[in-house]
Amino acid sequence: MTQRRAPGIVGTGETAFLRRPGPDCSTAGLLASAIERALADAGLALADVDGLGVASFTLRPDRAIDLAWHLGLGLRWCMQDEMGGASAINLLRQAWLALEAGQARTIVLAAGDHFAGADFAALVNDYNTSARDYLSPLGCLGPNPLFAMLTQRQMAAHGLSREDYGALCVAQRRYAAHNPNAAYREPLTLQAYLEAPMVAPPLGRLDCVPVVSGATALVLQAQPQGVSVRLLAQGAGYNLDQQEGDGLSTGIASFAAELWTQAGCQPGQMDVVGVYDDYLAMILAQMQDLGLVSGHGLRDFIAQRLLSGALPFNTAGGQLSAGQTGAGGGMHILAEVVRQLLGRAGTGQVAGARLGVASGYGMVQQRYGMCANAVVLGREVS
């Protein structure tokens, strides 16, 4: 019997991330554009697609099936996800299972949002019942105050300063210079970071992710030919601390050891890393939970591995420079790791990238993120 090949990711696509989109911009249009670009990258057409997964907060009142109809797609598999920074990896995990089970042959995953006027304020103020009934009435609008307190705790626990966080921001902006779709590409100095206006101490303006309109897409195939990216391992943890933890550790800590065993490799072997970066403190929390932090603690790790470029991370600029496209933020992080492994990252290509890890995090409840997941990915050539 001929052994069936594992599925693979064969293409990525992304729109420009826009701070001030024009009046003709729409969520459906952005998602469609990202899908078109991803299919072109994979050398495929809409007619090849029989599966669609979508993550979006602002596609409503339409859903994934409505978008499929607008695109003229007849599907064998369809899914929608609204778990914020964890959505991309959620979709990837489910799509992979569908391809392995023969439920579809070619699946496109697309994520993104368009924000106009007061759209974003309305979203965060009524994000869930906790935000609507408890946090917003107190003036705790959006996640900034919550993550300001978490950052204070992380600073105290690890002896970190604002300069340490600023180094992360400077490093990501350096990567963003190679991403033509990033909202912010101009060089950033540590001094400029420190002088940015305070938002919720110790968070300044550059610590908080800028909201943009845009979308990102991936193409997966059951039987890929040529270069593809294979899912080597995956894990997820949801509501593990029931909002009783200190926020300095994510659900990733609960499955990291199993993740690396399943992948057959170790954190130190990663050529490229993508971690969800709505706030700088969460970059460090996820990296620590993944086992990527080496040396004598977070301060040395930042200087010796991240700022130096020794460990390439969020190599398209991350959300803090490229921008956060609502529910599409996690797909931006995941797609960049895929792009690097496919060897299609242009002037920002990490030479010889063969292994990568991507993580997702999000969905704030009364305090911190409820969802965390991660995948280890590897380049494969048939």
Rank of each mutant, 00 (worst) to 15 (best):
R76E: 11
G346L: 02
T261A: 14
A316N: 11
T106C: 02
A196I: 12
R344I: 09
I65V: 15
G346P: 09
L75I: 02
G318N: 03
G74F: 12
L135H: 00
L18Q: 10
T325R: 08
G247P: 01
A131Y: 12
G356V: 11
L123T: 04
L44A: 09
R93N: 12
A257Q: 13
G328M: 07
G348F: 01
G237D: 08
S26D: 06
V10D: 05
G362H: 10
Q94E: 14
L290M: 06
R205P: 06
V381F: 04
L141S: 01
C25E: 03
M370E: 12
A86D: 09
A303R: 14
T250D: 02
R344Y: 02
C140R: 07
Q242R: 15
Y184D: 08
C371W: 07
V350C: 00
D289Q: 03
E244L: 15
G330F: 02
L342P: 04
Q262E: 01
A122P: 00
G29F: 07
M282C: 15
V357P: 00
Q80Y: 13
H114L: 14
V219M: 11
L138N: 01
P197I: 03
A167S: 13
T315D: 04
D271F: 00
F255Y: 06
T347H: 14
D289N: 05
V357C: 12
A121G: 03
V293W: 05
L138H: 13
N144A: 15
V124D: 12
E36Q: 13
P21F: 03
L52I: 10
E82F: 12
S26K: 11
G139I: 09
P197R: 13
A122S: 15
S130P: 00
G11L: 06
G85D: 06
F57M: 00
A47F: 07
G274N: 04
P201S: 08
L150D: 01
L203E: 05
A183D: 04
E336A: 11
A374P: 03
P312M: 05
A374V: 11
P187I: 02
R19I: 12
L109V: 08
S321H: 07
A176V: 08
D277A: 07
Y184H: 05
Q3E: 14
Y361P: 06
A28W: 08
V54E: 11
E82I: 10
L284T: 13
A222F: 00
A6D: 14
G330H: 08
G142N: 04
G84S: 11
G117P: 02
S228L: 00
L377S: 01
D41V: 06
T151D: 05
Y165K: 08
Q172H: 11
G352K: 11
L123H: 12
A167G: 04
C25F: 05
T325F: 00
T129A: 01
G309N: 02
W69R: 15
H178S: 09
G235C: 05
G343Q: 10
P61Q: 04
S249C: 13
G356Y: 10
L280A: 15
Y134V: 07
P187T: 00
L97Y: 13
L67T: 03
L290K: 02
L190V: 09
L342K: 09
A110W: 03
D246S: 11
W77P: 06
L160F: 04
